[in-house]
Nucleic acid binder design. Structure first.
Lengths: 329, 329
DNA sequence: TTGAAAGCGATACCAG
DNA sequence: CTGGTATCGCTTTCAA
């Protein structure tokens, strides 16, 4: 591989001049041309490592998230990645697969690779752990979709409480008396908020709370599948169920099909995420559609602002979810 | 930030000794302890950039793919990422969103960041372009899911021809006389193979080819949606349709629901990818299930082998797809 | 084993 | 503008 030195020699200029040329500084046209030619002839490429060593910048952004199986995260990420790349950053991604140990390890590891900033969808990390892990290496951080209590950074969340509340209210207003809910792990911020939304709806509609109707599990297929069975095994079955993410919704619907339970004739269901999938069902499944692309875009924007040196107080934005499929039934 | 020099000073040893300690060399226990302590007291972290500059290794692997919206790619990636990380590599990911320009640019860019290897799901890049872009910087490459004709590297593909053929044969054997197909862009390898499978099935069952029954588009929602409308507008409608990826399947089913066309009573449909989603429908949608996780695992394995210096001839592996949902109707 | 010193390949300051 | 040079922080001979 040719180095900047080789280019300088070949173009009969100093390395400083070559460096200036590369980085868009002022160079006399004649020399510039010589350098350009030398670069081409030698097929010279800057060595990114050497550059990073001097500039302390990798143009790399870490993305730490629990999974990529659901299109929800995939879409969010795709938008984010695109926006960041526009500004010259690439994304180093790590999925911790809902494992607390991995979540810690990966966070530590990502930081150690020299990323310039981080977008983080947290689950079970605590504020204490976070501080310990990031001590010393303070890089811009945006929390996305969820947040660690007491870690005060830029954050992008949705209106989990309102969305869950509205969904449950809608079910109740349809005449359902016993509305159940299948929740993700309470160690996830979103699960806690959606539960709060569920409770608020009951309160608002004056419906007593029955803890047999709330299933807590993980945000995964199995939880939806088994949660449905568990609810159907109740002495008094629920008449409707709210799921709280994509995987559990799929799991629940699969269990329902296998048991021959008709949706919505036998049990009403309100899904969450990926409305495009559920709107292909007939009749359409009412679904909470989170603004995932918007979320990704905002996270990127917030991070870029910090990366550009902005020093204001931490921002929080909360784009709103949409309830779809609740009209045309 | 403390440097290796600071640690050496504090521990009263030379930098070489510290370096050796860090990298697992032989160091007298007494000195090792002193170094350990100094590192802890100073909260020393190796500077990854400096290390890369010397070792020419970034422990970073590039992943270039067309999209992440479909769980197909998400799952594939998740498995790959996990395996690579086990060996100390992290993934830098780039989605080219089915744009040829981006595909080129991102490939070039990824290489310029100093990745040690690349997993690439190509679409429209040609062998010539590939050679031009990678000239000089020859790094291990694994082609995944698709391949560029004439670029001879390790490759992981599925049995697209057989899978599509079997699916169409199954439809024909169910008594369907006019089986249509909605294809992705012929610039994608998988689309070409699946078309070949479709044609082979017709041949095998002695059914004449009717080009009105083959819709070519992109591997996206709109193609499925519009493709369905186009096929339904035909003077003589197809009695069954094969879709060839997840997004088009969703698109098609959505269009069907909106038009009140019942699946499979009015039109038979054979889907592709993400069988877990389609198996929640009732009745279950017959679906070609590709071994996406297996594919991801194999790609990681192949790449790791090269990263470890293996020099054998390029390998090609083709794990088989499964036809699901074709029994219990 | 340990340490001194020579790079790795760029950037950026400073003098000319 | 241009060029010499110190420097970024680490790894790696090579002697001792």
């Amino acid at each position: 591989m040719a180095t900047i030195k080789d280019v300088a020699q070949r173009a009969n200029v100093s390395v400083s001049t070559v460096s200036k040329y590369i980085n868009g500084g002022e160079v006399r046209p004649q020399k510039a041309e010589a350098v350009r030619q030398a670069i081409e002839e030698l097929d010279y490429k800057v060595n990114p490592f050497a550059r990073m060593l001097k500039t302390h910048k990798s143009y790399s952004v870490g993305v730490l998230l629990p999974a990529l199986s659901a299109p929800f995260f995939g879409n969010m990420f795709a938008v984010m990645e695109q926006r960041l790349r526009q500004e010259g950053y690439h994304c180093t991604i790590a999925c911790y697969s809902a494992s607390h140990g991995l979540e810690r390890d990966y966070l530590k590891y990502l930081i150690s690779t020299g990323i310039d900033g981080l977008v983080y969808i947290p689950e079970r990390l605590t504020a204490g752990e976070y501080r310990e892990l990031t001590m010393g290496r303070a890089i811009p951080l945006v929390q996305l979709d969820r947040m660690i209590p007491d870690v005060d950074t830029d954050t992008v969340l949705t209106d989990n409480v309102d969305a869950a509340c509205d969904a449950v209210c809608w079910l109740l207003d349809q005449g359902h008396s016993r509305v159940a809910a299948i929740m993700g792990s309470m160690s996830a911020f979103t699960a806690r908020e959606r539960l709060a939304g569920y409770l608020r709806a009951l309160e608002r509609r004056n419906v007593p709370y029955d803890d047999a109707l709330v299933v807590e599990g993980q945000f995964d297929f199995v939880t939806g599948y088994q949660g449905f069975e568990q609810l159907m095994a109740l002495p008094v079955r629920p008449t409707a169920i709210l799921t709280t993410n994509y995987d559990t919704t799929i799991g629940l619907l699969t269990a329902a099909r296998e048991r021959g339970v008709r949706i919505p004739e036998d049990v009403g269901v309100f899904g969450y995420d990926c409305a495009d999938v559920f709107s292909m069902m007939s009749p359409t499944l009412p679904t909470v559609q989170q603004p995932e692309r918007e979320m990704g875009r905002m996270a990127a924007e917030l991070l870029l602002k910090r990366l550009n040196g902005w020093k204001g107080p931490p921002q929080m934005v909360r784009p709103k979810s949409l309830l779809v499929g609740i009209d045309r039934r």
